[in-house]
Amino acid sequence: MIFQSIATSYLRYLFGLSTVCLLSSCSVLTANKVDHISVYSLGNAQPTTEPERQENSIDTLRNPETPTIILSMPRAAAGFETKQIAYVRLAFQLEYFSLNQWIAPPSAMLLPLMSHALERTGDFNAVLQSPSRASGQLRLDLEIIRLQQEFFKSPSQVHFTLRAHLIDTASRRVIAWQEFDAAVAAPSEDPYGGVVAANQVVRLLVEQVADFCVRTQQQQSQLKAPQQVSFPTPEKH
Rank of each mutant, 00 (worst) to 15 (best):
P105V: 07
R89I: 11
F124V: 00
N63C: 08
W102I: 04
E50A: 12
V34M: 11
L223W: 09
F15C: 11
E50D: 10
A126C: 03
Q178E: 12
V195D: 01
L23G: 08
I58M: 13
L223A: 12
R53D: 04
K83Q: 04
H237T: 10
F152D: 08
T60K: 10
A91N: 03
G122V: 04
T68N: 02
S156Q: 09
E119Y: 09
T233W: 10
A45G: 15
V88G: 05
K153W: 07
V206M: 12
P234W: 07
M73I: 11
A185M: 06
E95K: 09
A104R: 07
Q46N: 09
D59P: 00
R62Y: 12
A183W: 04
T68S: 14
Y40I: 09
L205W: 03
V158W: 01
S188T: 12
F180A: 01
Q208F: 01
F180E: 02
L166I: 03
M109F: 00
E235C: 06
L42K: 07
D211P: 01
I175C: 05
V158A: 00
R133M: 14
Q218W: 02
S107W: 02
L205T: 00
G136P: 09
N100C: 15
K33M: 10
F124Q: 00
I103D: 11
S38E: 14
S188I: 03
A77K: 04
K33N: 12
L23M: 06
I175P: 09
I145G: 05
Q157D: 08
C26H: 05
Q218G: 02
C26K: 02
A210I: 02
N32R: 13
L61Q: 09
F97N: 14
